[in-house]
Simulated scan of single mutants.
Amino acid sequence: MTITEVSKKYGLSADTLRYYERVGLIPEVNRNKSGIRDYTEEDCKWVEFIKCMRSAGLPIEVLIEYVTLFKQGNETIEARKELLTDQRKQLVEKMEDIKKTIERLDYKIERYEQAVVIKENELRRTDD
Rank of each mutant, 00 (worst) to 15 (best):
E78A: 15
V23D: 05
L91F: 08
T126S: 10
A14F: 09
A115P: 00
E65S: 08
Y112R: 05
R31A: 04
Y112V: 04
G73S: 09
Q87A: 15
Q87D: 10
N74R: 15
R18Y: 10
Y66N: 03
I60Y: 13
L69V: 06
Y39L: 03
L12Q: 00
I36D: 04
M53E: 03
R22P: 00
T76K: 05
I64K: 07
I118K: 14
S34V: 14
Y107V: 07
R125V: 02
T40K: 11
F49C: 04
Q72T: 06
S7D: 12
T68V: 12
F49V: 00
E28P: 00
R80C: 04
T16Q: 14
K99F: 08
D86E: 10
Y112I: 09
F49L: 14
Y107L: 15
P27Q: 01
Q87T: 08
D106L: 02
V67C: 00
L84P: 00
E110T: 13
K108C: 09
D97W: 06
K81S: 00
G73P: 14
E21T: 02
V116T: 10
Y39K: 06
I36T: 06
E42S: 06
Q87P: 08
E48N: 06
R54D: 00
A79D: 02
R88S: 08
A79P: 00
E65L: 09
P27W: 01
L84H: 00
I50F: 03
N32Q: 07
R54C: 02
Y112D: 03
R124T: 11
E120P: 03
L123R: 15
L84A: 01
T4D: 09
E48Q: 14
R125Q: 09
E28K: 11
G11H: 14
R88C: 05
R54K: 09
R31Q: 09
D106Q: 14
V67D: 00
Q114Y: 14
E93N: 12
E61S: 11
Q72H: 07
Y39D: 04
V67A: 05
L91H: 02
L12F: 01
V117H: 13
A56R: 08
Q72E: 07
Y19M: 11
L58S: 01
E48I: 01
G24I: 05
E120F: 06
G11V: 08
I64Y: 02
V23N: 12
N30E: 14
R104W: 05
D127T: 02
E5I: 13
L17P: 13
T76V: 08
K119I: 00
M95A: 07
R125M: 05
Q87M: 14
Y20G: 03
G24Q: 07
L69A: 03
L83C: 03
K99V: 11
D86Q: 13
Y19P: 08
R22E: 10
I50C: 02
V116Q: 14
